[in-house]
Structures are given as C-alpha cells and as structure tokens.
Nucleic acid binder design. Structure first.
Ligand SMILES: [Mn+2]
Ligand SMILES: [Mn+2]
Ligand SMILES: [Zn+2]
Ligand SMILES: [Zn+2]
Lengths: 152, 152
DNA sequence: CTCCGTTTTGAGACATGTTGCAACAAGCGG
DNA sequence: CCGCTTGTTGCAACATGTCTCAAAACGGAG
C-alpha cells in the first residue's frame, strides 16, 4: 500500500517543492519528472525531450527547457557542460561531484568532492570564492592519451 | 619599411603556419585574422562574425566558425565557455590562464597558471591527467555575492 | 601564364535552445 | 461547483552554431 509521506517519492517531492513556492503542478511537469526519475548519468536537454515525447508526442521543447530551469532553481537537478559546451543534466546524484573529460578519447570521469578539495580550498582561501562543484568540468588529456601524444 | 621576417606580425605568422601545413591563405581567413588582432579579452563567435561583417558584409558564419577551428588547431586561439556554455575565444593571451566566473554578479577573473597549480598538480599526480588550463572555467559565487547570500 | 588537384567557400538545411506573447488552466476562495 | 488570479503553456520568431555538397579558387607544376 502507498503512503503519502512527505519525501519518499522524488516526483512527489518535486510537486511539494513547487507548490510550496506558489508554483503549479502541471501534466507537463509531471511527465518530465517521470522521465527524470528513470534517467541516470548525464543527459542533454535534447535527449530529455526525446524521451518525454515517447510518453507524450505533444511535448514542446520550450516547456521542457523551462521546466529544467525551474527544477534547477529548486535544486532537484544540476547541469554541467559537455565537450561541445552543451548542457548535460545530472539528476539526483548520489554525491556532489565535478567532471573530468578527455579531449582526445572523450572519456569522462567523476571527481568526488574530497578529491576536488585541493582546488576548492585554494580558491576559497585566496579569493573567498565558493566553487559550484557540480557545474565544473575539467578537460584536458587523460593518462593514456597523453602517452599516445608523447609517442608522436 | 616593412620586413618579411618570420614571426613579427601575427597575421603573417598565421599565414605561414597555414601554408606550412598545405592549407590555404584566403581573403576570408585574412579578414578574420585582422579582426582577431584588433580584439582583446574574450570574444564569442557571434561577435567575431559581427566585426568581420563591418569589414566585409559578405562574411559567412560557417566560414568564420571553421576558420576559428583551424586557428585553434594551430594554437593561435583558444576558447573557454561563458555562463551560457557559449564558446568565448581568447586571442593570443599574454599568459595561459583559467577563468573564474561568478554565477550571481556575472563578474569574471583570470586565474594564472601558478594559482591553478594546486589543482593541476593534484590531477596530474593522482590520475596522470594533463589539464587544459585555457579551457577551464570555474563557476560559483564570488566573495561579495556569497556575503549577500548569507545575509538572506 | 595556364592547368590541375585539393582545399575552401557559400548556400541551405538542420540541430538545439531561447524569448515574447496570447491563450490556457491550476488552485484558491466564495 | 464557479469564477478569478496568476503562473504556465505552445507557437512562432529568433539566435547561434553545425553539416553536406556543389561551385570556386589557392597555389604548385609545367
Ligand atoms: Mn570547449
Ligand atoms: Mn552552465
Ligand atoms: Zn583520453
Ligand atoms: Zn559575484
């Protein structure tokens, strides 16, 4: 049997968060939330539209993008940027992390907060700057690709 | 009187670099190079098209973007990404640096290589990863905006 | 100077978002 | 259940790039 406890279901949590701010719970938002709970890893806006259209072919891009903005304001999703600079949404990550991306082989890795501490600490100390870790993508050459490049 | 010495003029340097690779020196590329030498700071592709059109209204976007790619391959320009993820080109920077961007007030700062060393070193040591510093943009809240946020 | 192979350009279609605005509808109060 | 208020949607236009392909032209050879 289902319980209506406050925060078990992410969809219900989103609904409550919206209503708490005087915003509305619409079928379009509900549909996107359902897509998001089934997503994992990093997903672009275009991919989310695609998936939402499988549920409802009437799905409109502008509504999806606007909803993603709202959800980001509520802290329910976050985004970083892929190689092309395109936004990639990150849904309910297990832990906050930054991203590492090899420009050559296009592989990516996640950097946990502890590993990123050296950098965030330095910027906090010297500049009082609070780094948005989830938004951060560090690109460059991974160990393997670096070796290949040296060989040339 | 003008000298044809190898590398004084950035435009000539670009021309030589292109020819050395069997690529061609065209009026379109020359025009963009002339725009670039007069640019400073960070400039988006759209802005460069705009400026190129002041010289030659026939300027075509696809040609500009392709030329920027070529120049980046040659190491003559580099890009990072602004708040919206849009590419921002950096022309012949005095020194290689990363970027710091406040999400609230939209101010930006440059981080010199020495200051970024803490991070690049850590990633090199733990992962053998070579960070592309010029491409890096760290976003978050600057000291001032952090204070304002706390006050709320 | 002319010819030719290869690179480059420009046009147009396409991809991915963003924005203004009028119509719509969620949710509240009566 | 009904009507309002106000947040939301969908459309269309716009912004910024990317990609394909035929036509143009750079630059070296003859
Ligand atoms: Mn980039
Ligand atoms: Mn972003
Ligand atoms: Zn790699
Ligand atoms: Zn700020």
């Amino acid at each position: 049997m289902k319980r209506k406890s406050a925060a078990v279901d992410p969809v219900a949590r989103a609904r409550d968060a919206l209503r708490a701010r005087g915003m509305r719970w619409t079928p379009q938002r509900r549909a996107l939330l359902e897509v998001l709970v089934e997503a994992s890893g990093h997903v672009t806006g275009a991919e989310l539209i695609e998936r939402a259209r499988q549920r409802d072919p009437e799905t409109t891009p502008s509504t999806v993008y606007r909803t993603l903005d709202v959800l980001e304001d509520l802290g329910l999703v976050s985004h970083s940027h892929g190689h092309d600079g395109r936004e990639e949404f990150h849904v309910w990550p297990a832990s906050e992390h930054a991203h590492l991306a090899c420009e050559a082989c296009r592989a990516t890795w996640e950097i946990e907060a502890t590993e990123a501490l050296a950098m965030t600490e330095a910027l906090a100390r010297t500049r009082g700057f609070a780094v948005n870790l989830s938004h951060l993508t560090v690109s460059g050459l991974c160990a393997d690709c670096r070796r290949s490049a040296d060989a040339v």
